[in-house]
Amino acid sequence: MSQPAHESEPVRIPDHDLDDLVATVTRLVAQSRKQDETLARLTDEQLPQEDSEHVGADLPGGTASPASPADGNPGTTKAEEPASVFILALGPKAYAEELTALTNWVHNLLMPVYGREITTGRPWCRQWQEHPEAVARLHALWLAWQQLTDVQAGLAGPSTWHRDHLDPALLQLRTADGPFGACTTSAGRPHHRLLAAPEPAGA
């Protein structure tokens, strides 16, 4: 049985792949900035009054967010506030579009650079999109990447992203008892299984 690679062994990318990786990073940064601009434009636009009662209708579970009064004035609502950009708060169509963009980032940047070897102590799943926890954590990581690799984040932005976001996220995702605990533990034997969630109290 072959011994797993040492945990501290650096990731080595062949020289002929570096140009492709640089081009991919450049493209993803451009896409991220375009999405930021689109999001900023959308949040600046007020929702039509007649649609305010439907805000949040597409949240998981199909419940609409309440149009609660603001500052005690029953005639005003919080429709002007921007909706959450977190993927779990999106409606089905927006969720699918965001998941496609997230998948592009995970497959073209995150895993080629930070994936390391698959082992029993560091599992992974090719079908990670079917693990809700993995989707949530990877999306949060991607949102932080978009913000902290932007030029406005300053020179320390990427370092902050590695320290505060990447390392904790991978530690949670790829631990043996994480969401992929029942999935692939060897690159040569792909496996996918969703772990059962705990039963709600009183069920």
Results as ranks from 00 to 15, higher is better:
residue 149 T to L: 00
residue 123 P to R: 00
residue 84 S to M: 13
residue 116 R to L: 08
residue 19 D to T: 02
residue 179 P to W: 00
residue 157 G to H: 03
residue 51 D to C: 09
residue 57 A to I: 14
residue 114 Y to L: 13
residue 161 W to L: 05
residue 88 L to P: 03
residue 33 R to E: 13
residue 45 E to S: 05
residue 68 S to I: 10
residue 199 E to K: 14
residue 131 H to I: 00
residue 146 Q to T: 12
residue 188 G to K: 02
residue 22 V to G: 01
residue 127 Q to T: 00
residue 77 T to G: 15
residue 103 T to W: 01
residue 106 V to M: 04
residue 129 Q to C: 09
residue 108 N to P: 12
residue 77 T to W: 10
residue 95 Y to S: 05
residue 77 T to H: 14
residue 126 R to E: 04
residue 197 A to D: 14
residue 113 V to C: 12
residue 13 I to G: 10
residue 44 D to H: 10
residue 48 P to N: 07
residue 193 R to Y: 03
residue 124 W to H: 02
residue 132 P to W: 06
residue 76 T to Q: 13
residue 202 G to F: 06
residue 119 T to H: 04
residue 138 L to R: 04
residue 161 W to K: 04
residue 128 W to F: 13
residue 122 R to L: 09
residue 23 A to F: 06
residue 117 E to H: 03
residue 113 V to I: 13
residue 112 P to R: 04
residue 128 W to V: 05
residue 24 T to F: 02
residue 141 L to S: 00
residue 59 L to A: 08
residue 136 A to D: 12
residue 188 G to W: 01
residue 152 Q to G: 13
residue 116 R to T: 02
residue 190 P to H: 07
residue 182 A to K: 11
residue 111 M to A: 06
residue 188 G to R: 04
residue 43 T to A: 14
residue 64 A to Q: 14
residue 62 G to N: 11
residue 164 D to T: 00
residue 17 D to W: 06
residue 191 H to P: 01
residue 189 R to A: 02
residue 117 E to G: 00
residue 165 H to V: 06
residue 141 L to C: 12
residue 97 E to R: 07
residue 10 P to C: 10
residue 197 A to S: 11
residue 131 H to S: 06
residue 171 L to H: 13
